[in-house]
Nucleic acid binder design. Structure first.
Lengths: 173, 173
DNA sequence: CATTGCGATGTCATTCGCTGCCATCACTCT
DNA sequence: AGAGTGATGGCAGCGAATGACATCGCAATG
């Protein structure tokens, strides 16, 4: 990530990364499927954590509230890594290919969340829409939290966004 | 797209595409930024259309209802292209890189929608969340419509999804 | 202690996506 | 006829990614 920040993502070659890490190009590709994947290490772990948390919540909760609860729990694990997240986001924000990768990771998170909601008894459509809404809230809250000066917690941003979502989608008509 | 269906996306080389199209590789890359972009021709047009439609709707509509209305209008332009969309979706579904590209196109649609909503006077957060929810609904409805046997219109799927969204996000608590 | 097996790493060659540079061609306008 | 212009072709080159094979370190086993 140092290199990505120093020279920019596509001005950085895998050879350079390998050299700084003290290994060969070939070995790099044994650990990461491609050049972008480095920045998304741990996203699988996050997904598992989210699903497990979701499974641990009382079944009485409505799908959207279960998602809100699970995200809130997860948020606490992020609080101490805000500066790191900020650096990471700055790299991703400056490269479309990295944004694509981030989006598909979020999509994967959405799909897994929807699956977990179905396991809790939600219908297909409700599960999908709740998952989408929930992950969208997380994305928005995460971006706000990263940009903020560190006074407000991620959990607080998430709560605020969920509150807003409910009033928004109540809509007119 | 014929080639992508025949041999699969990554088994197809740009050289092959160029040959079948009767031009050179170099020329291909003058029309499309990369190999994936071929399948997303017209997405910019769709985005413009969505924004313009949104601008043409009465300002009295709540953000989420404006999005619903605009998507409904746009949906009618798709009805006659369902089989094409089906072939296209089958290619995209079988390749992660294409899914990434599709996601970022949808994200672009979301951002543009949010911007249009802000122009209508919505707050930042409301605009963003409404756009996310609306485009998510569109995505879900589109997938259902493509898989369906053609009896139900895209507009109908969209309406149904929006109705569901409202009841979902009303949530418990 | 020697040997055997195995996982991690290195080396090499190759394919392919993609870009820059320059030449060429067709066409239009003056 | 000649100049300008936009589209295309040809070519060289870089870098990402993959497959095949060699090697090394290390632990288990006898």
């Amino acid at each position: 990530m140092d290199l990505y920040i120093e020279r920019g993502f596509d001005q950085t070659t895998v050879a350079q990364i390998a050299q700084r890490a003290g290994l060969t190009e070939r070995t790099f590709f044994r650990y990461f499927a491609d050049k972008r994947e480095v920045l998304f290490w741990g996203s699988a772990t996050l997904q598992e954590l989210l699903v497990e948390t979701l499974e641990g919540l009382p079944p009485s909760l409505a799908p959207i509230d279960a998602v809100a609860g699970a995200l809130d729990v997860i948020a606490h694990g992020f609080e101490e890594r805000r500066v790191f997240a900020l650096r990471r986001q700055s790299v991703i924000a400056s490269n479309p290919e990295l944004q694509e990768r981030e989006l598909i990771k979020l999509e994967s998170l959405t799909v897994a969340t929807a699956q977990a909601l179905r396991s809790r008894g939600a219908s297909d459509l409700v599960a999908t829409l709740s998952a989408h809404a929930g992950i969208a809230v997380f994305k928005v809250a995460f971006e706000q939290w990263v940009k903020d000066d560190g006074q407000i917690t991620l959990a607080q941003f998430i709560t605020a966004s969920f509150t807003e979502l409910k009033s928004v989608s109540a809509g007119g008509s």
